[in-house]
């Protein structure tokens, strides 16, 4: 936990979106978004979660902080200009059914965008049947989903099993707070599923895929 993220967390909790943005501009070097997501915003939101555990803030405060955080991500989002290429890789992202936490997912979507991917961000709490329909219709190369709470794990597993068989056999990425606790790869979708415990990991994976070192469907 750095001083930056604690200061940022306080600005988020106070609902000061402009101050938060100028603070980020003052401390962020070269507009590095990955640092913003991974080293500033993520720890800030984790810290806010801890404040709730210590009963220092309420769910209402948390919601406000989330909304401000959402606004900041949108403000920094990379506007891709690589859209002329017709053969861009496609990714679809969503939070599993019942899951309302979405900030991490949104940041992951922004990371994909930076790499020039064609991104469909479907938001949190997407019913599985909708996800399935969308996957069959749009046929993404990658489907990224996230879960933050332990009791979403069964739903996450079910989603993996269903989506692994959609047209185009997408690579499935699992992220979110529960990602390190997922141990059903071999059982649910062998050779088709990857776990990303943080955005840096995702970033590195995308960088490798871009260079052609290990294509999307090659697993190491």
């Amino acid at each position: 936990m750095t001083d930056h993220s604690i200061k940022l967390a306080n600005l988020l909790l106070r609902g000061e979106e402009q101050l938060a943005i100028s603070y980020i501009h003052s401390v962020l070097i070269e507009n590095d978004r990955l640092t913003l997501y991974e080293d500033f915003l993520t720890p800030a939101m984790t810290y806010i979660g801890q404040l709730w555990e210590r009963n220092e803030i309420t769910v209402a405060d948390e919601h406000l902080a989330t909304a401000i955080c959402d606004f900041i991500i949108s403000d920094f989002e990379f506007r891709s200009s690589m859209s002329e290429e017709g053969n861009r890789k496609k990714v679809m992202l969503f939070g599993v059914e019942g899951e309302e936490h979405y900030i991490g997912l949104k940041m992951a979507a922004a990371v994909f965008q930076e790499f020039g991917w064609s991104v469909r961000y479907l938001g949190p709490n997407l019913p599985l049947r909708h996800a399935e329909t969308a996957a069959n219709a749009w046929q993404p190369d990658v489907i990224a989903m996230s879960a933050a709470l332990s009791y979403r794990l069964p739903m996450l597993k079910q989603s993996v099993q269903v989506l692994a068989h959609t047209t185009g056999q997408p690579t499935l990425l699992i992220g979110g707070r529960m990602a390190p606790h997922v141990h059903f790869e071999e059982e649910a979708a062998p050779g088709q599923m990857l776990i990303m415990t943080n955005l840096r990991e995702l970033h590195n994976w995308l960088a490798l895929a871009q260079k052609g070192v290990g294509t999307i469907n090659a697993f190491s």
Binding site: W52, E53, R54, N55, L149, S150, Y151
Partner: peptide, 11 residues
Amino acid sequence: EEESRPKAVLN
């Protein structure tokens, strides 16, 4: 609820 238990136990 499960995710609130650590907070409850602590207090």
